[in-house]
């Protein structure tokens, strides 16, 4: 298993946002984590990536305990992510957003950077080239020199994905990649995620849009911070009606 989360619990004051939650993701798998608003999906992401401190439980990534790591250390180990509200480096251009995310590889030491050694210059040239490739992949090469804040909403979302890809993650966490998108953009994003699957990327997606189900190998349903059910997309879709009967129609969108 690439990612193993066991008995994950998070309390905010007396409130428990995530309660004894388990999830596993194997190499090369696309796993969906679905549930209604406020179910604790994004909290799970923030706990995995170290943005929030875990109350109890354990997060293992590739056999290494990352429960108490800082967010940047988690990123260094190979977990890339996007954010729900999708913050960007607004004052950077689209290209700079991507190049600045090439922190981890190729790695240049402070000494290399400051004295502009040959290694640093070679790395930077490589990064420029790769960044253009990634922008091509997500369809933003036209906007490369635009400031990130001037992009349309859908393009900003894709830029968030491009940035996460630039860290060359072994596991990619996508936090509501479809939220706030129009149908055209949704179709485009689904294609992009399908491409990732073709490239053998391991992805964990948080969504409450059920269209994502078609892409997933496995789906985990979370409600009130607890795992409700888990299974193949088809099973979950059938189950969804049961769930909506229990929790009200709003429960599954």
């Amino acid at each position: 298993m690439l990612l193993e989360v066991e008995h994950l619990t998070k309390n905010f004051g007396g409130l428990s946002a995530v309660n004894d939650f388990d999830i596993q993701v194997a190499e090369g798998e696309i796993v969906g984590l679905i549930g209604p608003n406020g179910a604790g999906k994004s909290t799970v992401f923030n706990l995995i990536t170290g943005v929030l401190p875990v109350t109890s439980g354990r997060v293992m990534f590739d056999g290494c305990d990352i429960t108490r790591r800082q967010p940047e250390q988690v990123a260094r180990l190979g977990i890339g992510r996007t954010f729900q509200l999708n913050p960007l480096f607004h004052e950077f251009t689209v290209l700079e957003n991507v190049t600045s995310s090439f922190e981890l590889h190729p790695y240049s030491s402070l000494f290399d950077i400051f004295f502009s050694t040959r290694k640093y210059r070679r790395n930077e040239a490589f990064i420029q080239e790769k960044a253009h490739e990634i922008l091509e992949l997500v369809g933003l090469s036209e906007e490369a020199d635009e400031l990130a804040k001037n992009l349309a909403h859908g393009h900003q979302k894709m830029l968030g994905v491009a940035r996460a890809l630039a860290t060359k993650p072994r596991l990619l966490l996508l936090d509501e990649p479809l939220a706030g998108m129009n149908p055209g953009e949704i179709k485009y994003s689904l294609d992009a995620i399908r491409d990732m699957r073709a490239n053998g990327m391991t992805v964990l997606i948080v969504e409450h849009n059920m269209q994502i189900l078609s892409l997933c190998d496995r789906v985990v349903v979370i409600g009130f911070g607890k795992k409700i059910t888990e299974g193949l997309p088809g099973e979950v879709r059938a189950n969804a009606e049961v769930i909506s009967a229990y929790f009200g129609a709003d429960y599954v969108c």
Binding site: V51, E72, G80, P87, F89, H90, S101, E103, A166, T167
Partner: peptide
Amino acid sequence: KAVSQSHQVAASVG
């Protein structure tokens, strides 16, 4: 400059 614009995003890319 990345840290100053968003420490959260900066951390997510290492």
